[in-house]
Write a protein that binds this DNA or RNA. Sequence first.
DNA 1: CCGGATCCGGGTTGATACTG
DNA 2: CAGTATCAACCCGGATCCGG
Lengths: 215, 215
Amino acid sequence: MRTYGQFCGIAKALDIVGDRWTLLIVREMLALGPCRYSDLRNGLPGIATNLLASRLKELEAADIILREAAHPPVASHLFVLTERGRELEGVLRELGRWGMPMLEEPGQDDVFQAHWLAVPAKALTDRAPDEPPAVVQLKAEGVTNLVIEMARGTIHVHTGRVDHPSASMAGPPELLSSVLAGTIALETAQRRGLHVTGDLSAVERMLPLDDEKRD
Amino acid sequence: MRTYGQFCGIAKALDIVGDRWTLLIVREMLALGPCRYSDLRNGLPGIATNLLASRLKELEAADIILREAAHPPVASHLFVLTERGRELEGVLRELGRWGMPMLEEPGQDDVFQAHWLAVPAKALTDRAPDEPPAVVQLKAEGVTNLVIEMARGTIHVHTGRVDHPSASMAGPPELLSSVLAGTIALETAQRRGLHVTGDLSAVERMLPLDDEKRD
DNA sequence: CCGGATCCGGGTTGATACTG
DNA sequence: CAGTATCAACCCGGATCCGG
């Protein structure tokens, strides 16, 4: 492994997670939870299979992920983040926040997958722990849907759909991204084509407060 | 430029700053302020000069730095971070925090430079805005010294030495790093060989609070 | 189909030398 | 001082193949 050879926390971190694709692999596992090899490959369009295999080995050696025998019915094994791996969420949150301004326009030939919204969404906190649990369904055009669940002050995210959500948001990726990141207000997004149905207060409860929006 | 082609803030950020050396160049400019080409090269031991030149061009194109004509007396020109560049501080802070546990042992052949402590130090806040300004001098073994100035609630860091600091800390890099990051308590560090002289309260005023130490 | 391993062409990096 | 030029080595991406 190539290192910078500097006695500096930033350099040490980049020694481990600074290689191409590495942080995106961690993003996948933060967004999806335990992943099969092919889940990862699907979430990382363009990665070479040998690179994915080699990165997974390096991440395992660095104690960021581990390989877990899957429960009998289905797959052979799963890749899971360790505690040390989950601690990278702060890095990814800051990177995502910094990169958000570049998502304002729809993106020419970019691929979009709904679960990538999970990282900004997980950075949120449900500030109304006393309110009853609520579920918001996200539908981006042409991709898997996303479910955001709030209960007891925390937020949990997963892909898929749910039968009776408290509220639903549907629209183009850039509007969903910007709203979840707090870059634009909900009303603005609605005016630009975001469709919100159901309990509006459940959605508002989920969005960043003003002082969480740095950009 | 090679991009991931994903409509995702994290991927967009990595498209720009994910290349090898790029974030370390930003670290240098955050720590040192405006830099000459050779300041950067000195702070990045091991970088190839052509790589440095090419990264600087890319950073300039991405509006992260700009090239500024220097004031008459000395250099030809300086590299300065733009606002957009300074906004990367959050990313570097999180990376440094995550990498800190790897600095616990002195590091075999690693190079150390005092100004690398500036990034963790800048992440601090002076929580005693009403107290008089204070200056802490840092002396790591065998390298340039560092000055941390507190006044009116904020902290400012630069290299060099000052004549009459409020307090002084001297010792091996790993102790200084850990203390500034809040990984170990000041007393522990003193017991392990950190020398603190002068006004102890000035030093304590500068260290992370318990709830700022995540690790 | 899943989870890779192998091979190959081309782009990127790094070391050194050299120049205005 | 601030780079450019050159070149070898390595890394990356794409395709192919292979054992469960």
